[in-house]
């Protein structure tokens, strides 16, 4: 049995009167690559953000590595160190160089000696193929480079889980590939990943599990093969035929 990294039970979340997540259940095992797909407004981002406590759930359980996370028992800042997040719009720190972006949290939060943090940051930059950019400010980078720095920045905290919210949606088409390649490499190394994406090709190739959301519920969750070859729900079929034509 693989280790269960994330387990979500009966999760509910509303924004005012808008019930965005309705009794959502989800399980993510170690080294799983789960792609969350679904139409706009179906609650994908909200679900992902709940996993990182950027949104406050109304009720339900969020269990990370076997422990139900509650405000009373846990320091959210410590839980977040285990769960990295990559945003659609990167959110690099514009007043810091690439290297400073990466070492900020390890040095300030984990209190890792600066020298060591720099060394680790350089290794990460090599990994995302940006070694020559360490002293550059984010404004000088292309979108694809920014997103790879953002991935390196999240990895610098050595998280057990990585969350991605449409990491390639803000990129020019010709830059999508380099970011997906970096993510694929992470997946191959065994990182546990939850990815909200519209890149069906990538989902098909890299994910081992697909979760399809519709109006705040998970309509279908299945192994990738099965999901694409024999979707069960009519709405899933409609969504798939609409997206694969594109």
């Amino acid at each position: 049995m693989a280790k269960e990294m994330i387990r979500i039970e009966k999760l509910n979340k509303s924004f005012g009167d808008l019930h965005v997540l309705k009794d959502v259940d989800l399980s993510v095992n170690e080294s799983d690559v789960v792609c969350l797909i679904g139409s706009s407004g179906s609650g994908k981002s909200t679900l992902l953000r709940c996993m990182n406590f950027l949104e406050k759930k109304d009720n339900g359980k969020i269990i990370i590595e076997g422990e139900e996370i509650t405000k009373e028992k846990h320091n959210i800042n410590e839980v977040r160190q285990k769960v990295g997040m990559v945003f659609q719009h990167f959110y690099l720190f514009p007043h810091k160089t690439v290297l400073e972006n990466i070492i900020e949290a390890p040095v300030m939060v984990k209190k890792i000696p600066k020298k060591q943090a720099i060394q680790e940051a350089r290794d990460l930059l090599k990994k995302v193929d940006l070694s020559d950019k360490e002293d550059v400010y984010p404004s000088k980078l292309s979108g694809g480079q920014k997103q790879r720095v953002a991935i390196a920045r999240a990895l610098a905290m050595k998280p057990d889980i990585m969350l991605f919210d449409e990491p390639t949606s803000a990129l020019d088409p010709e830059l999508v590939g380099e970011v997906l390649a970096t993510m694929k490499e992470l997946a191959v190394e065994g990182m546990t990943m939850v990815i909200v994406t519209h890149e069906m090709g990538f989902a098909r190739e890299v994910a081992n599990k697909i979760v399809y959301m519709h109006e705040g519920t998970i309509l279908e969750a299945a192994d990738t093969q099965e999901f694409f070859s024999s979707p069960k729900d009519e709405r899933t079929k409609a969504f798939l035929s609409a997206t694969t034509i594109k």
Binding site: N52, L54, N77, E78, R80, Q81, V83, G84, M85, F87, H89, Y91, L92, F93, E104, A105, M108, V109, K110, A150, R153, A154, M157
Partner: peptide, 14 residues
Amino acid sequence: DQGQMEAGRSLGMS
């Protein structure tokens, strides 16, 4: 941008 705070928080910063 709100995202700056979220990015910091997501890295475990208070």
